[in-house]
């Protein structure tokens, strides 16, 4: 690495993020540590698959018009990725502190971006408010595509948004309902009403499929 000392800024379950200087740039190094609970054989496969896959799909997201960090370097053997440090705050931190109007605006924007991803066959796979960074310029930068996949099917789109809804309910329970409604509005702006109706029906179906969901709206 560039010689500077790495500072651990986030120890996630999936990977750790280090902030460091790399050729005079502030960068994030995402390192997928070996998981000691998994047998080495399985662990190696999962880590290298995810390390190769993530930069690829991050690039495709940019093409779809969704802001994502710039990738500088990928090291398959060490299972690490060096990418741009995105200035800003996690949506998780700001969502509950905003005024109602700002919160709904932000939710619409989130929905619009998710819509762009889905329209281009990108399923994020871990849509939570921790994985969206609100830049000082008011853009939402999507990070952590570690669990993403390519698909144009309704099912994974539904699962993706169902996860977003669930993340809102568990982390932002006070505003979950109104925020998700706006997300779906923004989503419709990107993919159209027709498709949004189908995806919304899919989300309801997934909710009912969960074993113990009462039939409620």
């Amino acid at each position: 690495m560039g010689g500077g000392s790495a500072v651990l800024i986030k120890k996630g379950a999936e990977a750790s993020l280090y902030l460091e200087m790399w050729h005079n740039r502030k960068v994030i190094m995402k390192r997928r540590h070996p998981k000691l609970y998994r047998t080495t054989e399985l662990d190696t496969v999962i880590r290298s698959q995810r390390t190769a896959h993530e930069p690829n799909i991050i690039h495709q997201a940019k093409k779809a018009g969704v802001p994502t960090p710039t990738i500088f370097k990928v090291d398959m053997e060490e299972a690490n990725i060096v990418m741009e440090f995105v200035e800003g705050k996690q949506v998780k931190e700001v969502l509950d502190t905003l005024s109602k109007e700002e919160r709904l605006q932000l939710s619409i924007l989130m929905g619009r971006m998710i819509g762009r991803l889905h329209k281009h066959g990108i399923i994020h796979g871990d849509l939570t408010t921790s994985n969206m960074i609100l830049s000082p310029y008011g853009k939402i930068v999507f990070v952590d595509f570690g669990l993403s996949e390519r698909s144009v099917e309704l099912e994974p789109k539904g699962v993706d948004l169902h996860l977003m809804k669930r993340a809102l309910q568990s982390t932002h329970y006070k505003h979950a309902t109104e925020c998700f409604k706006e997300i779906m509005k923004g989503y419709a702006e990107s993919v159209g009403q027709e498709e949004t109706k189908k995806v919304a029906a899919k989300i309801r179906e997934i909710e009912k499929r969960g074993r113990y969901v009462a039939d409620r709206e």
Partner: peptide
């Protein structure tokens, strides 16, 4: 197949 979808 190893199937984790976000938290599910």
């Amino acid at each position: 197949p190893y199937t984790v979808k976000g938290m599910d």
